[in-house]
Amino acid sequence: MSWSIVSAIWRREMRSYFASPSAYIVLAVFLLITGWFFTLNLFKENLAHMRSIFDILPFLLVVFAPAIGMRLISEERKSGTLELLVTMPVRDFDVIFGKFLAAFSLYAVALLFTFFYPFTIITLGDAQVGSIIAGYVGLLLLGGAYLAVSLLGSALTENQIVAFILSFALCAVLAILVFAAIVIPPPMADVIQYLSSTYHFQNIARGVIDSRDVIYFLSLIFLSLLLASRAMIQRKFL
């Protein structure tokens, strides 16, 4: 892997996010929705904990990640810049990884803004710091996985809207699979449950960072990025 290429791609994508209103809109909407659920919980229910945030965010991410990721490759394919990018001497995976890191950075910035909530809780009540940290680790992994899937969606089409819908559908399936497991007979149910992103997130958010859950997310990210690089351009694997 060439870090100079990854970083060049990362910098371009970051500037592109912040050069247009898109990043600001996404950040604002993200904070508005999480803030709404947090304050509702805090003032209406008079509960000072992060549960509501950690319950709602996994489903918010199903929409949020495709919104961040949809333009990453489809836009370049449409404008013709992809043709330049992949005919330069770059490894396809480096390009994909740089783009993934850019989307992930934007997401991490959004998460950073939500730190306001746990700080409020810690000051108000006796929150368990460990479970909050675990929750955030889970959110990073879950968001990373959805962003990688969205990057794959973006690599499959030159239409950003189609990319969004495709990525949304894929993420939604991963998210709700855990509910399907309830109505499926036992041996299959375990498999279905294992495939569901929500299941692994809930495991981590409970406060136990198990390597099995981490491996699930990391392999989902890696597999999606690999498929995305193959979808971006067909050629002999390098």
Binding site: I5, I9, S16, S79, L84, L85, P89
Partner: peptide, 26 residues
Amino acid sequence: YLPETTPLYLDMTVYEYLKHVAEVRR
């Protein structure tokens, strides 16, 4: 390579664009 549709990032200046290409080309 100069493709048929000129491959430009419209949100960059000329210098930024050429610098980006130079970086990707190492």
